[in-house]
């Protein structure tokens, strides 16, 4: 079985809107996959289903052998410890420093202080923020805040990194730097990356697998694909 697998998945919201219809998808361990499509095409729903923020109405969603669709609410946290999530709006706690924002994840897992420090410093060093440990989010640029968000996502060495438009709020140059960081995580740590994005330049430049979603169904799936305007829109 693939590391991530969707089998005949439907997601119909309570208001009757069908976000995902009969979707099947396989992603191998260590893959880097872009999920592209226009706004409200269903890519965010797909991403959210991977970490069980949304539950499929029908079908199965396997992540690392676990059927997320059948996972009890009380066990969801176990799944999320295996998945790192990178958000468009970073979701950092404004009153905590960069170090504390990353450390609090491990603290909440019950790690010892002596275990936390090296892991946090390693994660922040990997994203190039070793010098900013004591900075608060409002003292950092958007790119730096996104790096803290990535460091927080990888600090527990997850098997998969789910990124929901991580460069959506960033300028092209900063976006490139962020993509370098994410690419290095994929190559050096072997982490599977799934990234929903609108950023045509990034998709075209990186030549990774591209899954195109249109009105809740997969309209195309290309190895080393590119952002095709006619398919995504």
């Amino acid at each position: 079985m693939s590391f991530i697998e969707l089998q005949d998945v439907y997601k119909i919201y309570k208001n009757g809107v069908t976000a995902i219809a009969d979707m099947s998808l396989k992603i191998k361990k260590g893959d880097f996959v872009f999920v592209i499509g226009h706004t409200a095409c269903g890519k965010s729903t797909l991403i959210k289903m991977l970490y069980r923020e949304e539950k499929p109405t029908k079908g199965n969603v396997f992540v690392g052998g676990v059927n997320v669709a059948k996972l009890k609410n009380s066990k969801v946290y176990k799944l999320r410890r295996k998945i790192g999530i990178v958000f468009q709006d970073y979701k950092l706690l404004p009153k905590l420093t960069a170090y504390e924002n990353v450390a609090f994840v491990l603290e909440s897992y019950g790690y010892k202080e002596s275990e936390i420090k090296p892991k946090v410093i390693e994660a922040l060093t990997r994203v190039g923020l070793k010098e900013k440990l004591r900075s608060f989010p409002d003292e950092m640029s958007g790119g730096e805040q996104q790096r803290v968000c990535i460091a927080r996502a990888i600090v527990n060495k997850p098997k998969v990194l789910v990124c929901d438009e991580p460069t959506g709020n960033l300028d092209p140059d900063t976006s490139k730097e962020i993509m370098k960081v994410i690419d290095s995580i994929n190559k050096e740590m072997g982490t599977t990356i799934i990234m929903a994005t609108h950023d045509r330049d990034i998709v075209n430049r990186m030549k990774k697998r591209v899954v195109v979603i249109k009105e809740g169904v997969i309209a195309g799936d290309y190895e080393k694909g590119s952002y095709k305007v006619d398919e995504a829109h």
Partner: peptide
């Protein structure tokens, strides 16, 4: 906000 983030990073209930 803090609770949402904790949930998403896998903090147990």
């Amino acid at each position: 906000n803090e609770i949402d983030i904790m949930r998403l990073v896998g903090t147990s209930n």
